[in-house]
Amino acid sequence: MASDKILVLTDSNFKETLEKSSTPLVIDFWAEWCGPCKMVAPSVEELAEELKGKIQFAKMDVDSNQQVPMQFAVRSIPTFAVFNKGNLCGKFTGAMAKDQLKKEIFRYLPESAQ
C-alpha cells in the first residue's frame, strides 16, 4: 500500500527516520482492513508525488506496530501525524479528499516548510 514516494515505517525504524528527515514528515497510521484508510490512500499517494522533495510521506501499519501508535496516542484510523524538525506539530484523523488533506497538513507547518 506504499509507493516509492512513501516510506514504510515500523517501530524499529521510526526514530532514525524522524531524526534523519531533512523535510517535514507526515505519517499515515493505517490498517489493512480499515475502509477509510483505503479511501484516503490515493490522496496520500498523489500528495506524496506533488510535494516530493518538500514533505516526506510515510505509512505505518498499526496492526504490525504497537509502540509508535501508543506513543502518539493514535485511536481512530487513519490518523495523520505531522512532524517538523523532529517534533510533532499536529495530528488529525479521518478520510478526506486530497485538497482537505493538504490543507490540514499545511495548517501544522510554518510557511517556510510548505
Binding site: 497510521f29 490498517a31 489493512e32 482492513w33 480499515c34 475502509g35 477509510p36 484508510c37 483505503k38 498499526v62 504497537q66 501508535p69 501508543m70 493514535v74 485511536r75 481512530s76 484510523i77 490518523t79
Partner: peptide, 24 residues
C-alpha cells in the same frame, strides 16, 4: 475491507471489534 476486518476479529477475538481503530 471493513467486513473482512470485522470477520477476522470475530475469528481471532470472538467479537467483531471495529477494524478502524488502533488498540494497544
Amino acid at each position: 475491507s471493513v467486513v473482512h476486518g470485522l470477520a477476522s476479529h470475530l475469528d481471532e477475538l470472538g467479537k467483531p471489534l471495529c477494524p478502524c481503530n488502533f488498540y494497544p
